[in-house]
Design a protein around this nucleic acid. Structure first.
Length: 286
DNA sequence: AACAACCCCAACCGCAACCGA
DNA sequence: GTCGGTTGCGGTTGGGGTTGT
Protein backbone atom coordinates (compact mmCIF):
# COMPACT_ATOMS: atom_id res chain seq x y z
CA UNK A 1 0.00 0.00 0.00
CA UNK A 2 1.59 3.20 -1.05
CA UNK A 3 1.30 6.14 1.18
CA UNK A 4 -0.74 8.95 -0.17
CA UNK A 5 0.82 12.36 -0.32
CA UNK A 6 -1.01 14.69 1.95
CA UNK A 7 0.04 17.76 3.86
CA UNK A 8 3.55 17.60 2.50
CA UNK A 9 2.24 19.01 -0.74
CA UNK A 10 3.58 22.44 -1.29
CA UNK A 11 1.17 25.33 -1.00
CA UNK A 12 -1.09 23.66 1.52
CA UNK A 13 -1.63 25.35 4.83
CA UNK A 14 -0.94 23.62 8.12
CA UNK A 15 -1.48 24.51 11.74
CA UNK A 16 -4.43 26.03 13.54
CA UNK A 17 -7.58 26.67 11.57
CA UNK A 18 -8.82 30.20 11.08
CA UNK A 19 -12.49 31.03 11.65
CA UNK A 20 -12.85 31.82 7.95
CA UNK A 21 -11.55 28.40 7.04
CA UNK A 22 -13.95 26.80 9.48
CA UNK A 23 -16.84 28.66 7.91
CA UNK A 24 -15.84 27.64 4.41
CA UNK A 25 -15.58 24.02 5.46
CA UNK A 26 -18.84 23.97 7.37
CA UNK A 27 -20.73 25.76 4.63
CA UNK A 28 -19.41 23.42 2.00
CA UNK A 29 -20.15 20.23 3.89
CA UNK A 30 -23.60 21.37 4.89
CA UNK A 31 -24.37 22.19 1.29
CA UNK A 32 -22.69 19.27 -0.42
CA UNK A 33 -21.67 16.72 2.16
CA UNK A 34 -18.02 15.90 2.50
CA UNK A 35 -17.95 13.39 -0.33
CA UNK A 36 -14.35 12.60 -1.11
CA UNK A 37 -12.20 14.21 1.51
CA UNK A 38 -9.33 14.30 -0.87
CA UNK A 39 -11.13 16.42 -3.38
CA UNK A 40 -13.04 18.48 -0.83
CA UNK A 41 -10.42 21.17 -0.18
CA UNK A 42 -10.11 21.97 -3.86
CA UNK A 43 -13.86 22.03 -4.37
CA UNK A 44 -14.44 24.12 -1.27
CA UNK A 45 -11.58 26.47 -2.01
CA UNK A 46 -9.47 25.58 1.00
CA UNK A 47 -5.71 25.46 1.02
CA UNK A 48 -5.75 22.40 3.24
CA UNK A 49 -5.27 18.74 2.61
CA UNK A 50 -8.29 16.47 2.79
CA UNK A 51 -6.97 14.79 5.86
CA UNK A 52 -6.76 18.06 7.71
CA UNK A 53 -10.29 18.93 6.64
CA UNK A 54 -11.61 15.58 7.81
CA UNK A 55 -9.96 15.91 11.18
CA UNK A 56 -11.17 19.45 11.63
CA UNK A 57 -14.71 18.41 10.78
CA UNK A 58 -14.85 15.20 12.80
CA UNK A 59 -13.06 16.54 15.84
CA UNK A 60 -14.29 20.08 16.03
CA UNK A 61 -16.81 21.37 13.53
CA UNK A 62 -19.31 18.54 13.39
CA UNK A 63 -22.63 19.88 14.66
CA UNK A 64 -23.35 16.92 16.89
CA UNK A 65 -20.19 17.29 18.90
CA UNK A 66 -20.81 17.68 22.57
CA UNK A 67 -18.94 20.48 24.24
CA UNK A 68 -18.05 21.01 27.83
CA UNK A 69 -16.53 18.92 30.57
CA UNK A 70 -17.02 15.20 30.84
CA UNK A 71 -19.81 14.11 33.14
CA UNK A 72 -19.49 11.51 35.86
CA UNK A 73 -21.29 9.01 33.67
CA UNK A 74 -19.01 9.70 30.75
CA UNK A 75 -16.05 9.39 33.05
CA UNK A 76 -17.20 6.01 34.24
CA UNK A 77 -17.98 4.84 30.77
CA UNK A 78 -14.54 5.73 29.54
CA UNK A 79 -12.88 3.93 32.41
CA UNK A 80 -15.04 0.88 32.02
CA UNK A 81 -14.69 0.75 28.28
CA UNK A 82 -10.97 1.28 28.44
CA UNK A 83 -10.68 -1.63 30.85
CA UNK A 84 -12.25 -3.79 28.18
CA UNK A 85 -11.11 -2.24 24.96
CA UNK A 86 -7.77 -0.74 25.78
CA UNK A 87 -6.73 2.17 23.58
CA UNK A 88 -9.53 1.68 21.10
CA UNK A 89 -10.49 5.31 21.26
CA UNK A 90 -12.85 5.26 18.34
CA UNK A 91 -14.75 2.33 19.85
CA UNK A 92 -14.91 4.03 23.22
CA UNK A 93 -16.00 7.31 21.68
CA UNK A 94 -18.72 5.49 19.79
CA UNK A 95 -20.36 4.74 23.14
CA UNK A 96 -20.24 8.39 24.15
CA UNK A 97 -22.61 10.42 22.00
CA UNK A 98 -21.08 13.67 20.91
CA UNK A 99 -17.59 12.85 21.99
CA UNK A 100 -14.78 12.30 19.55
CA UNK A 101 -12.05 9.72 19.73
CA UNK A 102 -9.50 12.48 19.93
CA UNK A 103 -11.31 14.08 22.83
CA UNK A 104 -11.64 10.80 24.70
CA UNK A 105 -8.02 9.99 24.06
CA UNK A 106 -6.87 13.37 25.32
CA UNK A 107 -9.11 13.12 28.33
CA UNK A 108 -7.80 9.72 29.20
CA UNK A 109 -4.17 10.70 28.80
CA UNK A 110 -4.43 13.96 30.67
CA UNK A 111 -6.91 13.11 33.42
CA UNK A 112 -8.06 9.57 33.94
CA UNK A 113 -4.80 7.75 33.38
CA UNK A 114 -3.02 10.08 35.72
CA UNK A 115 -5.62 9.62 38.42
CA UNK A 116 -5.71 5.88 38.12
CA UNK A 117 -1.96 5.54 38.19
CA UNK A 118 -1.88 7.71 41.25
CA UNK A 119 -4.39 5.48 42.96
CA UNK A 120 -2.60 2.38 41.78
CA UNK A 121 0.50 3.49 43.63
CA UNK A 122 -1.49 3.57 46.81
CA UNK A 123 -2.81 0.09 46.43
CA UNK A 124 0.54 -1.67 46.17
CA UNK A 125 -0.40 -4.05 43.48
CA UNK A 126 1.72 -7.13 43.13
CA UNK A 127 3.85 -7.80 40.15
CA UNK A 128 2.75 -7.53 36.60
CA UNK A 129 2.72 -11.24 36.37
CA UNK A 130 0.59 -11.68 39.47
CA UNK A 131 -1.91 -9.24 38.10
CA UNK A 132 -1.96 -10.98 34.80
CA UNK A 133 -2.37 -14.27 36.54
CA UNK A 134 -5.22 -12.85 38.58
CA UNK A 135 -6.90 -11.84 35.41
CA UNK A 136 -6.14 -15.22 33.98
CA UNK A 137 -8.08 -16.83 36.77
CA UNK A 138 -10.79 -14.23 36.49
CA UNK A 139 -10.37 -13.25 40.11
CA UNK A 140 -9.81 -9.56 39.80
CA UNK A 141 -10.11 -7.40 36.75
CA UNK A 142 -8.63 -4.50 38.61
CA UNK A 143 -5.31 -6.21 38.94
CA UNK A 144 -5.36 -7.12 35.35
CA UNK A 145 -5.99 -3.52 34.44
CA UNK A 146 -3.27 -2.40 36.74
CA UNK A 147 -0.86 -4.59 34.93
CA UNK A 148 -2.01 -3.16 31.67
CA UNK A 149 -1.58 0.41 32.79
CA UNK A 150 1.80 -0.50 34.05
CA UNK A 151 2.86 -1.77 30.71
CA UNK A 152 0.75 -0.13 28.06
CA UNK A 153 3.49 -0.53 25.56
CA UNK A 154 2.83 -4.22 25.75
CA UNK A 155 -0.85 -4.00 25.01
CA UNK A 156 -0.48 -6.24 22.07
CA UNK A 157 0.56 -9.05 24.32
CA UNK A 158 -2.47 -8.95 26.54
CA UNK A 159 -4.44 -11.42 24.58
CA UNK A 160 -1.64 -13.89 24.92
CA UNK A 161 -1.44 -13.33 28.65
CA UNK A 162 -5.14 -13.74 28.97
CA UNK A 163 -5.08 -16.87 26.96
CA UNK A 164 -2.60 -18.26 29.43
CA UNK A 165 -5.29 -18.42 32.07
CA UNK A 166 -5.85 -22.08 31.46
CA UNK A 167 -2.17 -22.78 31.71
CA UNK A 168 -1.24 -24.29 35.08
CA UNK A 169 1.89 -22.16 35.26
CA UNK A 170 -0.25 -19.06 35.03
CA UNK A 171 -1.68 -19.65 38.46
CA UNK A 172 1.45 -20.86 40.13
CA UNK A 173 3.69 -18.79 42.30
CA UNK A 174 6.37 -17.14 40.21
CA UNK A 175 8.74 -14.44 41.39
CA UNK A 176 7.88 -11.04 40.06
CA UNK A 177 11.31 -10.52 38.61
CA UNK A 178 10.78 -13.46 36.35
CA UNK A 179 7.36 -12.37 35.28
CA UNK A 180 8.28 -11.18 31.83
CA UNK A 181 10.29 -14.26 31.09
CA UNK A 182 7.47 -16.46 32.20
CA UNK A 183 5.02 -14.50 30.16
CA UNK A 184 7.21 -15.10 27.17
CA UNK A 185 7.41 -18.76 28.00
CA UNK A 186 3.65 -18.94 28.04
CA UNK A 187 3.25 -17.41 24.65
CA UNK A 188 1.81 -19.88 22.23
CA UNK A 189 3.23 -19.84 18.75
CA UNK A 190 -0.07 -19.56 16.93
CA UNK A 191 -2.50 -16.66 16.94
CA UNK A 192 -5.13 -16.92 19.65
CA UNK A 193 -8.84 -16.18 19.52
CA UNK A 194 -9.86 -12.57 19.88
CA UNK A 195 -9.73 -11.94 23.56
CA UNK A 196 -11.66 -8.72 23.40
CA UNK A 197 -14.64 -10.52 22.00
CA UNK A 198 -14.41 -13.01 24.80
CA UNK A 199 -14.41 -10.30 27.42
CA UNK A 200 -17.08 -8.37 25.65
CA UNK A 201 -19.20 -11.45 25.80
CA UNK A 202 -18.66 -11.81 29.51
CA UNK A 203 -20.41 -10.15 32.42
CA UNK A 204 -17.96 -7.33 32.14
CA UNK A 205 -18.98 -6.60 28.61
CA UNK A 206 -22.59 -6.97 29.57
CA UNK A 207 -22.20 -4.08 31.96
CA UNK A 208 -21.78 -1.79 28.99
CA UNK A 209 -24.57 -3.24 27.00
CA UNK A 210 -27.08 -2.57 29.72
CA UNK A 211 -28.12 0.55 27.88
CA UNK A 212 -29.47 -1.59 25.11
CA UNK A 213 -33.07 -2.76 25.47
CA UNK A 214 -31.98 -6.30 24.71
CA UNK A 215 -29.69 -6.25 27.67
CA UNK A 216 -32.35 -5.24 30.11
CA UNK A 217 -33.89 -8.64 29.86
CA UNK A 218 -30.75 -10.48 30.70
CA UNK A 219 -29.94 -11.55 34.21
CA UNK A 220 -26.33 -11.60 33.18
CA UNK A 221 -26.15 -7.89 32.75
CA UNK A 222 -24.23 -6.21 35.52
CA UNK A 223 -25.65 -2.89 36.46
CA UNK A 224 -23.07 -0.38 37.51
CA UNK A 225 -25.34 2.37 38.58
CA UNK A 226 -24.10 5.77 39.66
CA UNK A 227 -24.36 6.42 43.37
CA UNK A 228 -27.57 8.18 44.43
CA UNK A 229 -25.55 11.07 45.73
CA UNK A 230 -22.16 12.36 44.92
CA UNK A 231 -19.67 10.18 46.74
CA UNK A 232 -16.90 11.51 48.87
CA UNK A 233 -14.20 13.00 46.74
CA UNK A 234 -16.55 13.91 43.95
CA UNK A 235 -18.00 17.32 43.54
CA UNK A 236 -21.20 18.30 41.88
CA UNK A 237 -21.44 21.95 41.19
CA UNK A 238 -24.39 24.13 41.97
CA UNK A 239 -25.57 24.17 38.39
CA UNK A 240 -26.33 20.50 38.64
CA UNK A 241 -23.57 19.55 36.29
CA UNK A 242 -21.81 16.31 36.96
CA UNK A 243 -18.46 17.74 36.12
CA UNK A 244 -15.65 15.96 37.85
CA UNK A 245 -13.14 18.19 39.41
CA UNK A 246 -9.51 17.24 38.97
CA UNK A 247 -8.06 14.91 41.55
CA UNK A 248 -11.34 14.65 43.36
CA UNK A 249 -12.76 11.61 41.70
CA UNK A 250 -9.71 9.43 41.80
CA UNK A 251 -11.13 7.24 44.50
CA UNK A 252 -14.35 6.90 42.65
CA UNK A 253 -12.59 6.17 39.42
CA UNK A 254 -10.31 3.65 40.92
CA UNK A 255 -13.06 2.01 42.88
CA UNK A 256 -14.70 1.49 39.57
CA UNK A 257 -11.91 -0.85 38.64
CA UNK A 258 -12.30 -2.75 41.84
CA UNK A 259 -16.04 -2.99 41.43
CA UNK A 260 -15.44 -4.04 37.93
CA UNK A 261 -13.91 -7.37 38.78
CA UNK A 262 -15.61 -10.25 37.13
CA UNK A 263 -15.93 -13.30 39.30
CA UNK A 264 -16.38 -15.36 36.29
CA UNK A 265 -15.70 -14.45 32.73
CA UNK A 266 -18.36 -16.82 31.66
CA UNK A 267 -19.37 -16.68 28.11
CA UNK A 268 -22.83 -15.50 27.27
CA UNK A 269 -24.25 -16.51 24.00
CA UNK A 270 -26.53 -14.20 22.16
CA UNK A 271 -25.63 -11.10 24.10
CA UNK A 272 -24.00 -9.14 21.39
CA UNK A 273 -25.64 -10.02 18.17
CA UNK A 274 -26.41 -6.38 17.68
CA UNK A 275 -22.75 -5.58 17.73
CA UNK A 276 -21.22 -8.42 15.81
CA UNK A 277 -22.32 -10.39 12.85
CA UNK A 278 -23.38 -13.96 13.27
CA UNK A 279 -20.35 -14.99 11.25
CA UNK A 280 -18.06 -13.29 13.72
CA UNK A 281 -19.82 -14.93 16.61
CA UNK A 282 -19.68 -18.37 15.13
CA UNK A 283 -16.03 -17.88 14.33
CA UNK A 284 -15.23 -17.30 17.98
CA UNK A 285 -15.70 -20.97 18.83
CA UNK A 286 -17.15 -20.04 22.15
C1' DA B 1 6.58 41.78 36.84
C1' DA B 2 9.28 38.26 34.80
C1' DC B 3 10.48 33.85 34.08
C1' DA B 4 10.18 28.81 34.32
C1' DA B 5 7.69 24.76 34.63
C1' DC B 6 3.76 22.43 33.81
C1' DC B 7 -0.75 21.34 31.69
C1' DC B 8 -3.90 20.68 28.10
C1' DC B 9 -5.68 19.92 23.62
C1' DA B 10 -5.94 20.81 18.62
C1' DA B 11 -3.56 19.25 14.97
C1' DC B 12 -0.21 16.46 12.68
C1' DC B 13 2.14 12.08 11.44
C1' DG B 14 2.38 7.63 9.84
C1' DC B 15 0.62 3.04 9.68
C1' DA B 16 -2.87 -0.19 8.36
C1' DA B 17 -7.36 -1.34 6.73
C1' DC B 18 -10.59 -0.76 3.29
C1' DC B 19 -12.26 -0.58 -1.36
C1' DG B 20 -12.71 -0.40 -6.20
C1' DA B 21 -10.52 -1.16 -10.66
C1' DG C 1 -4.97 -11.85 -6.53
C1' DT C 2 -2.76 -7.38 -7.11
C1' DC C 3 -2.37 -2.58 -7.09
C1' DG C 4 -3.11 2.11 -5.97
C1' DG C 5 -6.06 5.54 -3.91
C1' DT C 6 -8.63 6.74 0.17
C1' DT C 7 -10.02 6.68 4.83
C1' DG C 8 -9.73 5.62 9.78
C1' DC C 9 -7.19 5.22 13.72
C1' DG C 10 -3.85 5.71 17.49
C1' DG C 11 0.42 7.92 18.91
C1' DT C 12 2.81 12.08 19.25
C1' DT C 13 3.82 16.94 19.27
C1' DG C 14 3.70 22.09 19.37
C1' DG C 15 2.22 25.94 21.33
C1' DG C 16 -0.98 28.63 23.99
C1' DG C 17 -2.64 29.02 28.61
C1' DT C 18 -2.05 28.46 33.53
C1' DT C 19 0.35 28.04 37.75
C1' DG C 20 4.30 28.42 40.66
C1' DT C 21 8.54 30.77 42.11
Amino acid sequence: MGRSPCCDKQGLKKGPWMPEEDKILVDYIQANGHGSWRSLPKLAGLLRCGKSCRLRWTNYLRPDIKRGPFTVEEDKSIIQLHAILGNKWSAIAAQLPGRTDNEVKNYWNTHLKKRLLLRRDHHLFPSTYAAAAAAATGSHMAQWESARLEAEARLSRESLLFCGRSTPAATSSIPADNAVEHEAALLPPAPEPDFFLRIWNSDVGAAFRRRSPDCAESKSCVTIAPPPTAPAGMDVDSSGSNEILPEESSDEAYQLYLDFAGDDLGLLHGQFSSLFSSDMISDMHL
